[in-house]
Amino acid sequence: MRTLTDQLAQYAAYHRDRRNIATHFVGIPMIVLAVQVLLSRPLLGDVAGVPVTPALLVTALTCAYYLWLDRPLGVLMALLMAAGLALAWPLAAQTAALWLWSGIGLFVLGWVIQFVGHIWEGRKPAFVDDLVGLVIGPLFVVAEIVFALGGRRALHAAIEQRAGPLRSGRQALGTH
């Protein structure tokens, strides 16, 4: 399997325009929450007061993968994903209409924001070539935040070296 650096560098190669990356800070969390909302029905059971749903199972598997790739980022992702579940479960407990509207609405709006970013980028989304990009996207966003805060400098440098330089919006449009 590919390493954390391999996964993030491949994903980053599709995201070199700063505006596209900015759209991912909004769109990806919306999409992740939407999936958690939509998968929070049906209730499969209850373990120690925790509702067992498809959302919990998918989140647990995804977090296990993140932890396998990198323990510190995996722990951070698990905490963020748990927060998403804490928001998703009450929405799923509402009427079917509210549950569907919130889940589908977040999903569609998140993807619209993503596609605007990729129009600016001038490149298709990473998942078109590798479906693993759908799982790496949320990790990419969190890693970018960690990098912006000055963390994981060696990892950031390795990814940037492989992916190439970032472009501002003006550079991306060829209007240096």
Rank of each mutant, 00 (worst) to 15 (best):
L173N: 10
G151P: 15
G110R: 00
S102N: 00
V142Q: 06
H118L: 08
A12T: 03
G151V: 07
G164E: 09
S102W: 04
P165T: 08
G137P: 03
L57T: 04
L80K: 00
R2M: 13
I159W: 02
F147V: 10
V141F: 10
E144C: 15
L85G: 06
P42H: 03
L80S: 02
V47T: 11
L67W: 09
D46H: 10
H15Y: 05
V108N: 05
A34H: 06
L39H: 01
V141P: 10
A143H: 06
L43T: 14
A158C: 07
P165H: 08
L61H: 05
L38P: 02
Q36H: 12
T53K: 01
V32F: 09
A163K: 00
R162W: 08
V132T: 11
V128G: 03
S168K: 02
Y66F: 15
R16V: 02
V132D: 09
V50S: 09
R152C: 08
D6G: 06
Q36T: 05
V142S: 11
L139T: 05
V142F: 13
R18D: 14
F115W: 11
R71F: 13
T175I: 10
L61F: 15
Y65V: 14
A126L: 13
A78F: 06
S102R: 01
A22L: 12
Q7A: 14
A97E: 13
D46S: 14
P138C: 04
G74R: 05
R153E: 14
Y65D: 09
